[in-house]
Design a binder for these strands. Structure first.
Length: 153
DNA sequence: GCCAACGTTGGC
DNA sequence: GCCAACGTTGGC
C-alpha cells in the first residue's frame, strides 16, 4: 500500500491510536478491488511514494476487512464523490495496524537491484496502483533483505 | 519542475 | 464505441 509520507507516513501510523488507521481515500477501481480481497490477518507492505527516495518502510496487518469509505460521502472531503452514497457505496477502505517499521528501509533503487523482483508490480514502468498485490516470493525477498540489513548495522 | 504513463470524461 | 482532452500519479 502506497502513501505519500507528507500526507500520512509510517511514523503517523506508529503514533496513531492503537497504531491503527483506516485506509481511506482510495479512488481507483483496481486498487479498491485489491482491498476488497484482503482478509483479517493479511499483511501488507507500506511504501512511501513521492518521497526522496521512495522506500518500503514497514509491514502492517489488516484488522478489518473492506467497508464503505465514508469520506466519499462528505462534501467537504477532498475525496468526496457524489457517485458514492451510503445506500450504494462505490469506494471502500480497510483498517490496518502497524506490525513492524523497518530499521533499515529498502529504497526503490535497491529494490530494482534485487534478483527475483523483476515482475513486481511496483517496479513496472508507469505503475501507479496505490494498492497492489505482492507475490509470496517477492515478499520473502524483501523481508529477508530488511533483516539482513538490520544485522549488518 | 518536468513529463511519461495511466485513468476518466465527454463529444461525436 | 472511439478517442482526444484533461487530470493525476509519482519517479526523476
Amino acid at each position: 500500500m502506497k502513501t505519500e509520507p507528507s500526507d500520512f507516513s509510517i511514523d503517523d501510523l506508529k503514533k496513531a491510536r492503537g497504531q491503527t488507521t483506516s485506509w481511506d481515500g482510495v479512488r481507483n477501481y483496481q486498487a479498491r478491488n485489491f482491498m476488497r480481497e484482503m482478509r483479517v490477518g493479511d499483511e501488507v507492505l507500506v511504501y512511501h511514494s513521492n518521497a526522496d527516495p521512495p522506500v518500503v518502510v514497514g509491514v502492517a496487518t489488516v484488522i478489518r476487512e473492506a467497508y464503505p469509505d465514508h469520506t466519499a460521502f462528505d462534501r467537504k472531503d477532498e475525496h468526496y464523490d457524489a457517485g458514492s452514497t451510503p445506500e450504494d457505496p462505490r469506494w471502500y477502505m480497510v483498517d490496518i495496524r502497524l506490525k513492524q517499521k523497518f530499521k533499515r528501509q529498502l529504497s526503490l533503487p535497491e529494490l530494482r537491484e534485487l534478483k527475483g523482483l523483476s515482475r513486481m508490480e511496483l517496479l513496472r514502468k508507469g505503475s501507479r496502483l496505490s494498492v497492489q498485490p505482492v507475490r509470496a516470493e517477492e515478499w520473502n525477498i524483501i523481508l529477508g533483505k530488511t533483516k539482513g540489513k538490520d544485522k549488518d548495522k
